[in-house]
Computed example of a mutant assay.
Amino acid sequence: MAYPSSVDAFYHFLTIEKNASPLTIDQYIQDIQQFHDFLNKEQIHEVSDVHHTNIRVFLTELYQMNLSRRSVSRKISSLRSYFNFMEREELISYNPFQYVTMPKVNHKIPEFFYEDELVKLFESEDLTTPLGQRNQALLELLYATGIRVSELIKLNSADIDFTVNTILVHGKGNKERYVPFGSFAQHALETYLKDGREQLSRQNEDYIDDVFLNHRGQPLTDRGVRYILNQMLKRASLTSSIHPHKLRHTFATHLLNEGADMRTVQELLGHESLSSTQVYTHVTKDYLQKVYNNAHPRS
Rank of each mutant, 00 (worst) to 15 (best):
K75A: 02
G173E: 14
A144P: 12
S183G: 04
L79W: 12
I167D: 12
E140P: 11
E87K: 15
R88H: 14
E90P: 09
Q136T: 07
G173F: 13
E176W: 11
I147K: 07
I55T: 04
N54F: 04
V149M: 13
V100M: 01
L121K: 11
G171D: 15
P180A: 06
R88M: 13
V57P: 00
E176L: 14
V50G: 01
F58M: 08
D126G: 06
E61D: 04
S81V: 02
R56I: 00
R134W: 03
Y99G: 06
V149Q: 03
L59C: 09
I76Y: 04
T145F: 06
L91C: 13
E117Q: 15
T163L: 08
L139Y: 05
L152R: 07
Q133C: 00
S78M: 05
T145I: 05
P180Y: 12
T101I: 01
S77Q: 06
K104S: 04
L118A: 12
G132A: 07
I160T: 04
S78F: 07
H51V: 05
N84P: 13
S81A: 10
T60P: 07
F181I: 05
M86K: 13
L138D: 09
A185Q: 08
L152D: 08
E89C: 11
F58W: 15
I92F: 12
V169Y: 13
G146W: 03
T101M: 08
L141R: 02
H187M: 00
E140H: 03
P110A: 12
S124L: 08
V169M: 14
I92V: 15
I160N: 09
